[in-house]
Lab assay of single mutants.
Amino acid sequence: QIFVKTLTGKTITLEVEPSDTIENVKAKIQDKEGIPPDQQRLIFAGKQLEDGRTLSDYNIQKESTLHLVL
């Protein structure tokens, strides 16, 4: 699982696999929060994550925290 922290300070927990794409993660966030993926920007280690890449591409491991910017 990974954590996604929103600007409001809320933390969302997501069940993911390293092979999941960023697009996939955004879809999971939409399921939980109702935020359309095209409004979501995910930041990890100061980098904006691209939809077509996977979590493992960015070396995002379990218990990692991503930041969600709208």
Results as ranks from 00 to 15, higher is better:
45 A>C: 15
68 L>C: 04
8 T>Q: 14
3 F>Q: 05
16 V>G: 03
54 T>P: 06
58 Y>Q: 04
7 L>V: 15
8 T>G: 11
55 L>Y: 01
7 L>Y: 13
66 L>P: 02
67 H>T: 14
47 K>R: 11
44 F>Q: 02
55 L>Q: 00
67 H>G: 05
35 I>Y: 13
6 T>P: 05
54 T>Y: 06
21 T>P: 05
69 V>K: 08
32 K>W: 06
42 L>A: 01
43 I>W: 13
54 T>E: 03
3 F>E: 03
5 K>C: 09
20 D>S: 07
12 I>W: 06
36 P>R: 09
23 E>G: 14
9 G>K: 03
50 E>D: 09
49 L>H: 00
14 L>P: 00
62 K>F: 11
20 D>V: 04
28 K>I: 06
58 Y>A: 03
15 E>Y: 13
3 F>Y: 15
49 L>M: 06
29 I>G: 00
41 R>T: 14
8 T>W: 11
8 T>P: 05
33 E>W: 10
17 E>Q: 14
9 G>Q: 04
34 G>Y: 04
56 S>W: 10
36 P>E: 08
67 H>Q: 12
37 P>D: 04
68 L>M: 09
45 A>P: 01
28 K>A: 07
34 G>C: 07
43 I>N: 06
32 K>C: 11
24 N>R: 15
1 Q>P: 10
38 D>H: 15
24 N>S: 14
36 P>W: 06
66 L>Q: 01
27 A>E: 10
59 N>P: 03
68 L>N: 01
65 T>Q: 06
9 G>V: 02
17 E>S: 14
60 I>F: 03
61 Q>E: 11
1 Q>C: 12
70 L>Q: 11
13 T>A: 10
66 L>D: 01
67 H>A: 07
45 A>D: 14
6 T>S: 07
3 F>C: 05
17 E>L: 14
67 H>C: 13
37 P>K: 14
60 I>D: 01
10 K>A: 08
17 E>H: 13
7 L>S: 15
17 E>T: 14
42 L>T: 00
52 G>L: 07
7 L>P: 15
44 F>C: 04
10 K>D: 07
21 T>F: 09
27 A>L: 11
66 L>C: 01
62 K>C: 09
22 I>A: 02
52 G>K: 11
36 P>N: 07
60 I>C: 04
8 T>D: 12
65 T>F: 07
14 L>H: 00
47 K>Y: 10
13 T>Y: 07
18 P>Y: 11
41 R>F: 11
65 T>P: 03
51 D>T: 06
58 Y>T: 02
36 P>K: 07
20 D>Y: 06
46 G>S: 05
10 K>R: 12
2 I>S: 01
63 E>L: 13
19 S>D: 12
60 I>V: 08
39 Q>L: 12
33 E>K: 04
17 E>M: 14
9 G>D: 05
59 N>W: 04
32 K>N: 05
24 N>T: 14
62 K>G: 11
49 L>Y: 01
27 A>W: 12
22 I>S: 02
3 F>T: 06
43 I>G: 03
38 D>Y: 12
65 T>E: 08
21 T>L: 09
24 N>P: 00
13 T>R: 09
42 L>R: 00
27 A>F: 14
65 T>K: 05
2 I>D: 01
48 Q>D: 13
26 K>H: 02
29 I>W: 00
12 I>H: 03
18 P>T: 09
22 I>K: 00
19 S>W: 13
14 L>M: 04
51 D>C: 06
57 D>M: 06
58 Y>C: 05
34 G>R: 06
37 P>F: 14
22 I>G: 02
58 Y>D: 02
35 I>D: 03
4 V>G: 00
16 V>F: 15
25 V>I: 11
35 I>K: 02
68 L>A: 02
11 T>H: 07
48 Q>W: 11
62 K>Y: 11
58 Y>P: 00
7 L>G: 13
23 E>M: 14
12 I>N: 01
48 Q>V: 13
46 G>F: 05
58 Y>W: 02
44 F>R: 02
68 L>D: 00
30 Q>K: 10
50 E>F: 07
37 P>T: 15
4 V>C: 04
40 Q>I: 11
70 L>H: 10
32 K>E: 07
12 I>R: 01
70 L>K: 07
59 N>C: 09
53 R>E: 05
46 G>A: 04
33 E>R: 04
54 T>A: 06
28 K>D: 02
49 L>D: 00
27 A>Y: 12
3 F>N: 05
25 V>L: 11
21 T>Y: 08
63 E>A: 12
31 D>R: 11
66 L>H: 02
61 Q>L: 12
36 P>S: 08
6 T>F: 15
35 I>H: 08
49 L>W: 01
44 F>K: 03
5 K>G: 03
30 Q>P: 02
21 T>R: 07
19 S>Y: 11
4 V>F: 03
33 E>V: 13
60 I>R: 00
13 T>E: 07
6 T>D: 07
7 L>A: 13
62 K>Q: 13
22 I>C: 03
68 L>Q: 02
24 N>E: 14
7 L>N: 15
10 K>C: 13
27 A>G: 09
64 S>K: 04
3 F>M: 06
25 V>P: 00
60 I>W: 02
25 V>K: 00
7 L>W: 13
11 T>L: 13
42 L>D: 00
64 S>T: 08
4 V>Q: 01
39 Q>Y: 09
17 E>R: 10
27 A>H: 14
62 K>L: 11
7 L>I: 14
25 V>W: 01
55 L>K: 00
9 G>Y: 04
24 N>A: 14
50 E>M: 08
45 A>V: 06
26 K>S: 01
51 D>N: 11
10 K>S: 07
15 E>H: 14
36 P>D: 08
63 E>Y: 15
11 T>Q: 07
61 Q>P: 14
53 R>S: 08
15 E>C: 15
26 K>F: 03
1 Q>L: 14
59 N>H: 10
14 L>K: 00
37 P>Q: 12
52 G>Q: 10
45 A>K: 11
55 L>S: 01
1 Q>Y: 15
37 P>N: 07
66 L>T: 02
12 I>M: 06
17 E>W: 12
66 L>E: 01
4 V>Y: 02
62 K>W: 09
46 G>R: 04
59 N>Y: 07
70 L>D: 10
11 T>Y: 10
14 L>S: 00
63 E>S: 10
57 D>P: 00
60 I>T: 02
11 T>F: 09
30 Q>L: 09
45 A>Q: 15
1 Q>F: 15
40 Q>A: 05
54 T>Q: 07
57 D>Y: 14
35 I>P: 04
20 D>C: 08
63 E>T: 07
11 T>R: 08
56 S>F: 10
19 S>I: 06
18 P>E: 10
52 G>H: 15
55 L>R: 01
5 K>R: 13
31 D>E: 13
27 A>T: 10
29 I>T: 01
44 F>E: 02
55 L>H: 01
45 A>F: 09
2 I>Q: 01
61 Q>W: 08
31 D>Y: 10
36 P>I: 06
41 R>C: 15
46 G>V: 02
10 K>Q: 09
32 K>Y: 07
63 E>K: 08
64 S>E: 10
3 F>K: 06
56 S>L: 13
24 N>H: 12
27 A>R: 14
31 D>W: 10
56 S>Y: 10
59 N>T: 04
9 G>T: 03
19 S>A: 08
53 R>G: 06
31 D>V: 12
12 I>P: 00
24 N>F: 11
49 L>F: 02
36 P>Q: 07
8 T>A: 11
19 S>C: 14
70 L>I: 14
25 V>F: 03
13 T>G: 05
58 Y>V: 02
34 G>A: 05
